[in-house]
Design a protein around this nucleic acid. Sequence first.
DNA 1: TGTACATCAGTGAACGCGCGTTCACTGATGTAC
DNA 2: TGTACATCAGTGAACGCGCGTTCACTGATGTAC
Lengths: 224, 224
Amino acid sequence: VADVGTTARAKKQSSASTGHQAPARRRARRGEGELLRDEILEATAELLDEIGSADKVSTRAVAQRVGCSSPSIYLHFPDKVSLLYAVSERQFEALHAKLEERMDVFEDPVDRLRAAAHAYVEFAMDHPEQYRIMMMDEAYGAMYQEDLDNLAQSVGFNLIVRTVEDGIAQGRLKPADPTIVALSMWAAVHGLVSLVIVKKGINLPPIDDLVDLVCSQNLEGMKA
Amino acid sequence: VADVGTTARAKKQSSASTGHQAPARRRARRGEGELLRDEILEATAELLDEIGSADKVSTRAVAQRVGCSSPSIYLHFPDKVSLLYAVSERQFEALHAKLEERMDVFEDPVDRLRAAAHAYVEFAMDHPEQYRIMMMDEAYGAMYQEDLDNLAQSVGFNLIVRTVEDGIAQGRLKPADPTIVALSMWAAVHGLVSLVIVKKGINLPPIDDLVDLVCSQNLEGMKA
DNA sequence: TGTACATCAGTGAACGCGCGTTCACTGATGTAC
DNA sequence: TGTACATCAGTGAACGCGCGTTCACTGATGTAC
């Protein structure tokens, strides 16, 4: 009611309200509307990491982090679920890229699998809350429901299966169903890392030692 | 404003509103106030199973399931978090009891460990959404933070550690750190079951076969 | 046996909040002539 | 070079909803005398 005279800009600046971060974005040029889309995705990913629950990350908080208004989000995403879906897709791509990068250092399939396990754990420990959402959250689990091959692809599962196949073909691993071997490795590593994330504070041996142990149980025992 | 004449009971009965289930509870006798507490715990557990997210189970829904008003919940629990905590404690006790029951059928430590793994998986598959909340949810993870020994106890972890110790003492398993062996078994089984729960619909071999495989990798390889 | 009373086990209505989303709008940017 | 105009990239205010929780109360149950 009062305070109509001062410009909107001045008001936004002065009323810091709850806003620790509002970098006061500049409006994008004509063809650059997609820039905001990227900033929204990044801010959402950050907030998911900090807050650790998709439900509790509000579109308003995302907007505030970006420095835009909350309706602006709807210029780029039809609704909140779509935004979260897009973030998760990005994150799966990042995980996949990291696995590939770390595996490609090695030639030997067994080394490659160990490298993959360690890279997977590193990713999860770097973004524990995002990992929770990607791999433990109901919403995201359901998202990929129709699209299982896509999930396997994204999560790097096929990468592992193929490497196990190579190992068997090259005589480095005993013949076995490569999908089962890959699955039990994945489950063991995921189990480990998810326990550490959820029951944080539980005092465990260093996680990398545990990962080595899991790799040994899954691979060394299977060496040809 | 209108409709004041008809009794409250009649109103409740007729306005079925969204209420599929409102069993029209009878008020407890003088000393039996604790009865409602139990009913609230059970209704909450049911709803958690059905809905699969602690956030999305509302106190109002719990009250409706029980057939009482929502303020009644606050007669027995100071707030929603305490209610959820109490439910989860109950559930951990049930899991512990199930493990003990299934293990006690066998004498041999290796058999006992296999039985434990299968019982654990059965519990999780019977109450997938509760298992998610107990083992994958942030809120519950945090609840037990101060109380790690209690967690280990509740989840049956100590039971497993002791059985591994027995196995080693009896010469049925190779000498090793019993905690590490138990932990890697737990992680592998938890990893498996949590993948199946979250990524439901993913087409996998029967889970019991996978559990057997995991047991083999963790135990058979370790047999003395 | 009858009645006044304390208390126990609850209830209906409401408060205040934060959220996802919509609506009607604004004003800078580039384009046509 | 100047100006009218379309459009793109946003915005402020508000709606409606569901939630956890509180408040003032009610009425059945048992007890004292």
